[in-house]
Amino acid sequence: MKKYMVIENFKPGLMEENYKVYNAKGRQFPEGLHYLNSWANTEKNICFQLMESNDEALFYEWFKKWDKFVDFELFPLD
């Protein structure tokens, strides 16, 4: 599986609401998208997630579920 770094930039004032949805529904990953680890900086409203998948398109499917709260950046890792 290929590894990716996902950078989540929380939209102003929405980080708390984002975590309410997360606590109620989980990460809501599509089948085939796998979470490995994450690191958050609440002061900067940013989260880094190390993930893996064989299908990069699954990330964009997942991003659509959270784009109300977050602007995403996706970086394939070598």
Rank of each mutant, 00 (worst) to 15 (best):
E31M: 14
E61S: 06
Y19N: 03
S53W: 12
E16W: 09
K65R: 09
Y35N: 10
Y4T: 07
M15T: 04
N23T: 02
D71Q: 13
K44C: 04
F72I: 06
Y60E: 01
F75Q: 15
F48G: 02
L33I: 08
F29C: 01
D67I: 11
D55N: 13
K20C: 02
E52T: 05
K11T: 03
S53A: 08
M51F: 01
L14F: 05
Y19A: 03
R27S: 09
L33W: 01
G13Q: 11
K20Q: 11
C47G: 11
L74H: 02
E56G: 03
F63L: 06
E8N: 15
E73P: 00
L74V: 12
F72C: 08
F29R: 04
C47N: 11
E56K: 12
D55C: 09
V6T: 04
K68M: 12
F75K: 14
F69Y: 15
D78L: 06
E56W: 01
N9F: 15
M51T: 07
N23Q: 10
K65G: 14
L36I: 15
N45W: 02
Y4S: 06
Y35W: 12
Y22L: 15
I7L: 14
L33N: 02
P76Y: 03
F10Q: 00
V70R: 00
G32S: 13
E43M: 04
K3Y: 15
Y19W: 11
P12I: 03
F29E: 09
F29N: 03
N45V: 01
F10A: 02
M5G: 08
L33Q: 01
Q28V: 14
W62L: 01
K3D: 08
P12M: 03
E52W: 02
L77W: 01
L58Q: 01
Q28D: 11
L33E: 01
Y35M: 11
H34S: 10
N18W: 12
E52Q: 14
E17H: 05
F29K: 06
N45I: 01
I46L: 04
Q28T: 13
G32M: 13
G26T: 03
Q28G: 13
